[in-house]
């Protein structure tokens, strides 16, 4: 990290904090909702970053935690009459427990096999929720209405999402300074070496997966309560997994701020595309994913930290590094 890079980072962090607090009071409901969605994706990308970025296990099924969080809240609140403030933490815990149970067998797999197994888990859960009675199958499930003014609801979800994101950041920053964080990075760099140096790799990987699940589950709970109605297709959508990974990669994996910057830029780009090309915006989104992966595989944080000068040469060098 260069001196300039550190300063740039502080400036960006300052701008983000000020903008984050000011936005809901200066703008209308539409913009607040847009940033609430962006914050949700920032949570998902940051959670993915814990398992995919720091631990090096490319999960392609992280959307399953969003879905489980959403459905735990929906079922508890609608069927059990449980208040939100109990259903909300229960969703995070439910997703974390699921991560532990599924992680025990699946985290033994490596590379592509892990990626595909997680994808399979997410699709299997979607198919299961589609067929269960308690989740009301593929017709979807409603959540109780919220007793707040419209503006109040927008503000509530905005600041709740922001709270979860800040919690994700704080916990990530905390574990990175502890033995756990060093252990995870050691696993990413060389799992066998880490194991032989006394890192309990199984425990560490499962902890990392559970943390990833916990925060995504909290986001899922908020998402479900905000939507008021959820369907398996929407909350177990593999496209959401793709989006969170693209955001993490585009921002810069293995950095705390990267996923947030990635989420912000990708959401803004998607929104602009949707406005201009109503029919074809997903097509352009695909093109952006391709270009981002080819030209900036190390993400925005690599540019911001100022290790190398940004320009045409920077983009071409990235290709030279990985082409054949």
């Amino acid at each position: 990290m260069t001196e300039r890079g550190a300063v740039t980072k502080k400036v960006i962090l300052g701008i983000l904090i000020i903008a984050g607090v000011a936005i809901p009071f200066l703008t209308g409901n539409f913009i607040i909702r847009f940033f609430t969605d962006t914050l949700m994706f920032a949570i998902l990308a940051s959670s993915w970053n814990i398992i995919g970025g720091y631990t090096g296990y490319a999960s392609f099924g992280n959307v399953v935690f969003l879905g489980i969080g959403a459905y735990v809240s929906a079922v508890l609140m609608q069927k059990g009459g449980v208040p939100f403030w109990i259903a909300f933490p229960a969703s995070g815990l439910g997703a974390a427990i699921f991560a532990i149970l599924i992680g025990m067998p699946v985290l033994r797999l490596k590379g592509h096999y892990f990626a595909i197994a997680t994808l399979g888990v997410a699709e299997a859960m979607k198919a299961l929720v589609d067929n269960l009675d308690i989740t009301e199958g593929n017709s979807g499930i409603y959540l109780p209405m919220m007793k707040l003014s419209v503006k109040g609801q927008y503000l509530f979800f905005y600041f709740m999402m922001m709270g979860v994101l800040v919690l994700t950041f704080l916990v990530t920053a905390f574990i990175l300074k502890k033995k756990l964080g060093y252990g995870l990075i050691a696993i990413r760099e060389d799992e066998e070496a880490a194991g032989s140096l006394g890192v309990n790799t199984t425990l560490y990987k499962i902890t990392s997966f559970a943390l990833s699940g916990f925060f995504s589950g909290l986001a899922g709970s908020l998402y479900a309560y905000q939507q008021g109605f959820i369907k398996p297709d929407a909350v177990f959508d593999v496209g959401v997994t793709v989006k969170m990974i693209v955001m993490a990669v585009f921002g810069g994996i293995g950095s705390i701020l990267g996923p947030l910057l990635g989420a912000l830029s990708i959401e803004v780009i998607s929104e602009v595309l949707t406005n201009y090309f109503l029919v074809a915006h997903t097509l352009f989104f695909g093109a952006i994913v391709i270009l981002a992966i080819v030209f900036t595989p190390k993400g925005i944080m690599d540019i911001i930290s100022g290790r190398r000068k940004f320009g045409i040469n920077y983009l071409l060098q990235n290709i030279r590094d990985h082409r054949i």
């Binding site: 490319a58 392609f60 496209g239 693209v246 097509l283 695909g286 952006i288 994913v289 391709i290 992966i293």
Partner: peptide, 10 residues
């Protein structure tokens, strides 16, 4: 993997 996903979306 993500590149292939991008191609798929496209």
């Amino acid at each position: 993997l993500i590149l292939a996903f991008g191609i798929e979306i496209f």
